[in-house]
Design a binder for these strands. Structure first.
Lengths: 147, 147
DNA sequence: ATAAACCTATGTGCAACACACAGGTCAATA
DNA sequence: TATTGACCTGTGTGTTGCACATAGGTTTAT
């Protein structure tokens, strides 16, 4: 089976399959007559595993390590548990950051809705330069003991 | 002012300043005696703008375009509004994806808490290969009309 | 003068692919 | 049989926003 067929079968792009092959996650056989990569059932199973692991947030390097453990005859599960814990922390952090960014963007759009496009010569874009984040504006943060 | 000093002053790394310089966002003057980049007050203002824009989710390329508009004498605000709308959509999508990923990871950890590290020879990692996502498992999705 | 500490510019690496390119393969047609 | 066209292939490079490594220059202390 050539790259395109495997890709289609597994619902990914041919470039993705080539990428996994390049970094050694898949090990097709180089056809002698035309130089094409020939993928076997094993590669197909392997690719399925990679896709599942990616869905759970593992990086390709994580997956390499997990496969490495497995191929050395060790049970990869402890490593898997350890890795997902780290990835979960990162995902949690990304989630929080993305949430905050989204809020900032909404706040900016709200503010810009009622502000004109005025252009001082001194700045680049008055909208951006005069944006005050109501969430992170320390004067408006939680307590207002200054009145 | 050299790169380190400007970076420290603005709360970013010297590498960040160098990066912005390399892609033309900052335009320091090359000192003739030692070949170092000399940053002016203008660069400092520009850097401040870049940092603000980054906080609002604009890409460096967005910022280049906005600055380009401004330097051509046009008001960049319409462009700014258009760009942030696009970026907000992307951020919203990322937010949703990250949320779903987080949920999948939690579900996996929950499931793995009560499942042993069993290792079938045929698979790479039984934890990953036998993970069933309760959220996306179509058999458990909303309606159960098959009974 | 010389050593140590600190700074600089430039080149490369990272993640996970997507894209561009040049050329090979295969079936249909003239 | 030759040729056209559609489709496929591998390999090289681009993407984003920096961080890191390297080699060397500057400055200060001795």
């Amino acid at each position: 089976m050539y790259v395109k067929q495997l890709a289609k079968l597994m619902g990914v792009t041919a470039d993705t399959v080539r990428h996994y092959t390049r970094i050694g996650l898949l090990n097709p056989i180089r056809s002698e007559e035309n130089g094409y990569q020939e993928y076997t059932k094993q590669d197909q199973q392997r690719l399925k595993f990679i896709i599942s692991a990616r869905q759970l947030g593992f990086s390709l390097k994580d997956i390499q390590h997990i496969i490495g453990e497995s191929e050395q005859g060790n049970c990869p599960c402890p490593l898997t548990r350890k890795l997902i814990t780290k990835r979960l922390e990162e995902t949690e952090a990304l989630f929080q950051e993305t949430l905050k960014l989204r809020n900032r963007m909404h706040a900016a759009l709200d503010q810009w809705d009622t502000s004109a496009d005025g252009a001082n010569a001194s700045d680049v874009c008055s909208l951006i330069e005069s944006f005050v984040d109501p969430i992170n504006d320390s004067a408006n943060k939680e307590q207002r003991n200054d009145d």
